[in-house]
Design a protein around this nucleic acid. Structure first.
Length: 489
DNA sequence: ATTAGGG
DNA sequence: CCCTAAT
């Protein structure tokens, strides 16, 4: 989808200079301000804008909401964007984001400020409202409670997929390659084919190219760590200015180095998971600030901010990075913390994401309304495509029956995902793949109708691998005699 | 502590 | 995902 056009080759330099950024004004202004701009303005914004960069994007989207004239430009963009928004938060919140936008607008009158804002992009713009928000990052349910995080990652990915953005900051250029599934097509192999937004299995079949075995999972894992090595240390930078933020009552000081490190940090980690975590954060925050008065705004602001970040460069700085209390690095390197034995059980408020990604963008409206069934899926973390592929790789390597090994080797960084989870997932994958296989045989159209809602279509390539593995490693792996086998390795 | 299986 | 039984 948009990803194609977004094939960003632009090199924008957010002019992140050492100077600190004063945000106070924004704060003061971002209060109930329903001078209402077209509430749907966002929907009409050109997605491309988001992917271009903070500075540019900010000026156009935050300040100049006048660029939303292309009514019904096309459902495609709407769908993608809306879907994205939907995941991050309820659409209502987005509308509220406009308030913020307006607030910002008034301060974006000159370019200089606009540039500063780009710094803010890396700063917790949204949390400016939180006088006391020191505990978020330490939320025990941080990972375990990440409910319905799925949609976000996928939708987001869809927007920026395969885009290659170079973020130049003072001679340093961080090149981030985003290799992920492109939304619903899951066509992460051949970006050229990305051209649909529908969830029609049909498209899947037609568009989805078979992917080389090795796949990207190994790709991502191999590439990113390399870049990380040099920069990883930056993650453990000084305890952050968190304290300042709070005492200054919202004024944020962000140095270029931090901005950069944030960007880097993000890029070095698995995008899917990061986005998932982001979602978690959103959710956690919701829980943290239930005060009716400030809650709404804060949350909305946050969403807004983060959402934008997502678009900016896909990866979004996690607050942990800012608080300095728990960077992703430290977090993920500490597998035991996330969901050791008993799951933290952190109730997740609304955000009934169901299987947003599996549903067609069309019924957004419907989804928005159904906020009730939220608590149904207490703690569930969506499996991202990259995770699935990791799992598949793991099974290919160790076979079924050695879940702990696979867990340790391929999911060591994911505190959530217990060996059991892996097994369950595999079980589901088998079922899903077999179903899809059948689908291919039968009358596509009709079967689709039935199955479409059953599950999100997996990329054909993945299905293939699963089926392949299924034959090699028959799930309950028994010998003719009936004894369970543990493949030696 | 792990894994298989069912709910 | 959760829980339980079997190893």
């Amino acid at each position: 989808m948009k990803c194609q056009r977004v094939k960003v080759d632009e090199s924008f330099v957010p002019s992140v200079e050492g100077k600190a950024v004063e945000v106070q004004p924004l704060l003061a202004e971002s209060k109930p301000d329903h001078t209402s701009i077209d509430g749907d303005a966002w929907k009409h914004l050109d997605i491309e804008d988001f992917s271009y960069g903070f500075e540019y994007g900010l000026k156009r989207n935050y300040g100049g909401l006048d660029c939303n004239t292309t009514q019904g430009q096309d459902e495609l963009e709407f769908g993608v964007l809306d879907g994205l928004l939907d995941e991050v938060d309820e659409v209502d919140d987005i509308h509220a984001a406009n308030d913020i936008s307006r607030a910002c607008e008034e301060f974006l009158l000159d370019v200089e400020l606009a540039e500063k804002i780009s710094d803010l992009d890396c700063a917790p713009l949204g949390r400016l409202h939180f006088g006391d928000s020191s505990s978020e990052s330490q939320s025990p349910g941080f990972s375990g409670s990440s409910n319905g995080v799925h949609g976000l990652s996928e939708s987001s990915i869809a927007v920026v997929t395969d885009s290659e953005c170079k973020i130049g900051v003072e001679n340093k250029t961080v090149k981030c390659e985003l290799n992920d599934s492109s939304g619903d097509n899951w066509d992460y192999q051949a970006p050229e084919n990305v051209f649909t937004t529908t969830h029609d299995l049909e498209n899947l079949d037609e568009v989805d190219d078979a992917k080389p075995e090795s796949g990207m999972s190994s790709d991502d894992n191999a590439k990113k760590p390399v870049q990380a090595s040099n920069l990883r240390q930056k993650r453990f930078r000084k305890p952050t200015l968190r304290s300042h933020d709070e005492h200054l009552g919202g004024s944020v000081t962000l140095t270029k180095e931090e901005s950069l490190s944030e960007i880097i940090t993000q890029e070095t980690l698995d995008d899917d998971e990061k986005l998932s975590d982001l979602k978690s954060k959103c959710i956690n925050r919701r829980q943290k600030f239930p005060s009716p008065a400030s809650k709404d705004k804060c949350l909305k602001t946050e969403s807004h901010n983060e959402l934008n970040l997502v678009r900016g460069f896909k990866s979004v700085p996690r607050e942990g990075s800012f608080t300095g209390t728990s960077t992703q690095a430290s977090f993920e390197s500490c597998p035991q913390r996330g969901r050791p034995k008993k799951r933290p059980y952190v109730p997740v408020p609304e955000s009934d994401n169901e299987d947003a990604a599996s549903e067609s963008e069309g019924d957004n409206a419907k989804r928005r309304k159904s906020k009730k069934s939220a608590d149904r899926r207490k703690h569930q973390r969506m499996w991202t495509l990259s995770e699935v592929m990791k799992l598949i790789d793991g099974i290919a390597q160790y076979g079924t029956g050695r879940w702990t090994d696979i867990k340790k080797l391929l999911f060591s960084s994911s505190a959530y995902r217990t060996p059991v989870d892996l097994r369950d997932k595999w079980r589901n994958l088998l079922r899903a793949s077999s179903v899809q296989k059948q689908k291919l045989k039968q009358n596509k159209k009709e079967v689709d109708q039935k199955l479409k809602h059953a599950m999100r279509p997996l990329p054909k390539s993945v299905i293939c691998r699963i089926l392949e593995l299924a034959t090699v490693h028959p799930y309950p792996r028994f010998t003719p005699g009936g004894r369970y086998i543990r493949r030696k390795n």
